[in-house]
Computed example of a mutant assay.
Amino acid sequence: MKKITRIALAGALALMSSTVAHAAGEVNIYSYRQPELIKPLLDRFTKETGIATNVLFLDKGLVERIKAEGVNSPADVILTIDIQRLTEAKDGGVVQPVKDNALINKDIPASLRDADGEWFGLTTRGRVVYASKDRVAQSEITYEELADPKWKGKICIRDGQHAYNIALFASMIAHHGADYTQTWLTGLKNNLARKPDGNDRSQAKSIMAGECDISLGNTYYVGLMMTNDKAPEEKEWAKSIKVLFPNVKDRGTHVNVSGMALAKNSPNKANALKLMEFLASVEGQKIYAEQVFEYPVMAGAEPSAIVKSFGTIKPDTIALTEIAKHRKQASELVDKVGFNEGPSK
């Protein structure tokens, strides 16, 4: 169904004529964020403004697509996960600055927006450990500990090259250097129960099934599983795990961002700015917190009661732009140690 949705959305946008792209009351969104995660926000935005939203969801190649479309690109707003994809959009020259916008700047801390106004962080999420409630007694853990042989055969994880994991591995390089991280990745690899597989949610399923005891996952997926009435089996997966925030006694838990940027050749710039203002607003941040289960970036904004139930997060204070510098090296180390081949025999 997701694949059909992506194809349908891609087709709809591909068929847009320049007249439609410039039509009053529309805004075109190119998104790395899954449609179901941004739907509550876009529905509310349309209800309040009357501005229709057209979404093209891409798994990869967003920057390349906009470049290929050139000045005729219908893209107005880019929504994405991960600091690397935000900086890629800037470095790729497919965004334009939004400066002196009081409504956006007042609600997003300066540390979470580009100095040139070319991207803005909207939410944060922790890369945490999902642990079996039945088989894992400890209530504290560190990322470094994941390479300890005591976890041999007990860890599940998704593809090591996935953006979420690469960001974490890059943060390890930022803190400890490449040599340490290579050794650590080798240890983590040898503790895996199987080859990296699935997504964050399926790791919780594997824990419930007894295939592993711990995994890495993003905080917001736990909230989504806990409240998924359409797939109630996910509620059972969530019940089987507890959230452990790594490194609470030292540097803190690795966090990443979701963010937005104004496309370089936005044909509906006024509407695009209205959407960006909405996403940064009190109301937008509240929806992110209550329905998407992410941590809002607005000062004083509270996470949802469900997210609070996981415990208090202590975010790692290292700059995300510093982590982004090490992503290429992190990806190379994943391949160098054969991480995706799974544990050594």
Rank of each mutant, 00 (worst) to 15 (best):
P74H: 10
D82Q: 09
D82M: 11
R85K: 08
T87Y: 00
E88C: 07
K90S: 02
D91L: 13
G92I: 15
G93I: 13
V94D: 01
Q96P: 03
P97S: 04
K99G: 02
D100I: 10
N101V: 11
A102W: 06
I104C: 10
I108E: 08
L112S: 06
D114T: 08
D114Y: 05
A115P: 04
D116T: 15
D116V: 07
G117R: 14
E118M: 14
E118A: 09
W119E: 09
W119D: 09
F120Y: 10
T123E: 00
T124R: 10
G126T: 07
R127G: 07
R127I: 14
R127S: 04
R127N: 15
V128W: 03
A131G: 05
S132Y: 11
K133M: 00
R135M: 01
V136Y: 07
A137N: 02
Q138P: 02
Q138K: 05
E140T: 09
I141E: 01
T142D: 06
E144P: 04
E145M: 09
E145L: 05
L146N: 11
D148L: 13
P149T: 10
K150N: 03
W151M: 07
G153D: 10
G153L: 10
K154Y: 06
K154A: 04
I157P: 01
A163M: 12
Y164I: 12
N165K: 02
N165F: 07
A167P: 01
F169M: 05
A170G: 08
M172R: 01
I173K: 04
A174L: 06
H175F: 03
A178D: 15
D179I: 01
Y180A: 11
